[in-house]
Amino acid sequence: MIRQRLFSEFLATCLLLVIVVGSGIMAERLAGGNDAIALLANTLATVGGLYVLIEVFGPVSGAHMNPAVSVVMAIRGDLAWTRLPAYIAVQLAGAACGAWLANAMFDLPLGFSEKARGGAGPWLGEIVATAGLLLVVLRAPSSRVAAIVAAYIGAAYWFTSSTSFANPAAAFGRMFSDSFAGIAPADVPAFVAAQALGAALGVSIHALLGKDHG
């Protein structure tokens, strides 16, 4: 059973990065230098793909695809602490494999991204994006979590200055693709720190709001 769950998390995270990175490459090539059109195409692909991934893999592993989500699920008791390291390991491995697969499909060389994403604005954007994501994950009805999470991420692509990575595994994987969705390795640690802070903030807001009284 645990092997199935870990394989599910690996495959789901891998496919998430294939969707995010691959659609970014395709969008950049077809947009003719128009970043707004490229981001719109990247957003639409991510929204649709994320919804499908949560629906397909959620019943098997929870479809976290995100170490921040897994940590919070462990704190809530929905994921055993003993399984948390393995979840994070396969998420990171899946993210890297997904980026490499996207590169291979579009004949891009393997290597690291040179796309700089540093600065106070993007870091604040990651705090906001991740706080919102965790709040949505914790409060969305289970029957609608796929649609609500996908919709939130799609919106956050546009209202955050960082384009809403909101996921340490995504930040890790995207540094392996020098493309529209990439991030320079030097900028990853600050993004992950901002995401951790945002996750803690999202959990705190959820606690302050209390139970949904309908």
Rank of each mutant, 00 (worst) to 15 (best):
171 A>H: 13
84 L>Q: 15
98 G>Q: 01
147 A>F: 10
166 A>E: 11
121 G>V: 12
173 G>A: 14
89 A>N: 10
121 G>S: 13
66 N>S: 11
177 S>Y: 07
71 V>G: 00
43 T>N: 02
52 V>W: 00
23 S>P: 00
38 A>W: 00
190 A>I: 12
84 L>E: 15
168 P>W: 04
211 K>M: 09
24 G>L: 05
101 L>P: 03
62 G>E: 03
69 V>G: 08
76 R>N: 09
162 S>W: 02
114 E>Y: 04
61 S>D: 08
206 H>Q: 12
201 L>Q: 06
198 G>K: 03
135 L>H: 09
155 A>R: 01
35 D>P: 07
8 S>G: 11
173 G>C: 14
124 L>T: 04
158 W>Y: 14
89 A>R: 08
75 I>N: 05
132 G>K: 04
7 F>A: 12
72 V>R: 05
207 A>R: 14
205 I>Q: 03
23 S>F: 06
212 D>L: 11
183 I>E: 07
38 A>T: 06
42 N>Y: 09
76 R>K: 13
135 L>I: 10
110 L>V: 08
199 A>R: 04
154 G>T: 14
9 E>L: 12
10 F>Q: 06
197 L>D: 02
193 A>W: 07
102 A>E: 11
189 P>I: 03
80 A>T: 02
71 V>W: 04
36 A>W: 04
146 A>T: 01
87 Y>N: 01
128 V>L: 12
175 M>P: 14
136 V>Q: 10
61 S>C: 13
180 F>K: 15
94 G>M: 00
157 Y>H: 15
29 R>V: 00
32 G>S: 13
161 S>L: 11
112 F>L: 13
12 A>N: 06
177 S>I: 13
170 A>L: 11
179 S>Q: 10
106 F>A: 13
74 A>G: 12
29 R>H: 03
125 G>Q: 14
184 A>N: 11
166 A>Q: 06
63 A>Q: 11
150 A>V: 00
50 L>Y: 04
147 A>M: 12
179 S>D: 15
139 R>F: 03
57 F>L: 05
112 F>C: 05
166 A>I: 15
174 R>F: 09
128 V>D: 00
128 V>I: 11
97 C>W: 09
187 D>Y: 00
37 I>K: 09
59 P>L: 05
80 A>N: 07
11 L>M: 15
151 A>Q: 12
114 E>V: 09
67 P>T: 11
76 R>M: 08
25 I>V: 09
137 V>C: 06
171 A>L: 13
165 F>N: 10
82 T>P: 06
134 L>P: 12
164 S>K: 10
48 G>R: 05
19 I>A: 12
203 V>N: 11
